[in-house]
């Protein structure tokens, strides 16, 4: 099984960095893969339209921020319809998963799950002049791994769901949400 892109959803992100349109392979890619493989990419945070991560390279910490455009307008409408249809067809889906067939379906409608690096705004706190730097590329590989583990994250990034998204476990309340003032009641 490949380290990156085991599912159709993660594979889309791997393809975005290893773009086949480019004739000469990016020489930074092996290093980026190695960073991701060796857990150098930590605290990956995946929010609607934004990916942030910290990358540790030779003892130095670099902060990576990648802005990714959300699906809008007609694209969003079509995507929502395809997603809804697919979820209705796969009722027994395990939490966090999405069918690979949906990824293919989106692609065949011309809707990109991933965004090629030249269509993103990426920043990194390193001093390298090569852009995107190896840390930004490594963050993409780490993203592909996270998405493989939890395909639903691919949608979080491009099309945040307003409803039907189960938040947390109803049996437990996050400590940050406990009202300290009302702790002992009236």
């Amino acid at each position: 099984m490949p380290d990156f892109g085991a599912t159709g959803w993660g594979r889309a992100w791997v393809r975005a960095v290893e773009s086949t349109a480019v004739t000469t392979p990016n020489p930074l890619l092996p290093k980026a893969r190695s960073l991701a493989r060796n857990d150098a990419v930590t605290t990956v945070d995946i929010a609607p339209g934004r990916l942030t991560a910290e990358v540790v390279d030779r003892g130095r910490h670099h902060r990576v921020t990648i802005d990714i455009p959300l699906w809008t307008g007609q694209v969003r409408l079509v995507a929502d319809r395809l997603v809804a249809r697919s979820l209705a067809e796969h009722r027994g889906l395990a939490p966090g998963d999405l069918p690979d067939a949906l990824a293919a379906d989106l692609a065949s409608h011309g809707i990109d799950i991933a965004v090629p690096t030249d269509a993103q705004t990426a920043t990194c706190t390193c001093a390298s002049r090569r852009r995107p730097c190896s840390h930004v590329l490594a963050t993409h590989y780490a993203l592909a791994q996270r998405v493989d583990e939890q395909p639903a994250l691919a949608l979080t990034l491009r099309a945040p769901r307003r409803t039907g998204h189960r938040q947390g476990d109803p049996d437990w309340i996050d400590l940050r949400e406990v009202d300290a003032a009302a702790f002992y009641g009236g």
Partner: peptide
């Protein structure tokens, strides 16, 4: 009617307490 003190049991990771209903 259950104040947090009544259900202040922590989860294994100590990041959350059990909900009143649970």
């Amino acid at each position: 009617r259950l104040p947090p003190a009544a259900h202040a049991v922590l989860n294994a990771e100590e990041t959350a307490i059990m909900s009143a209903r649970a």
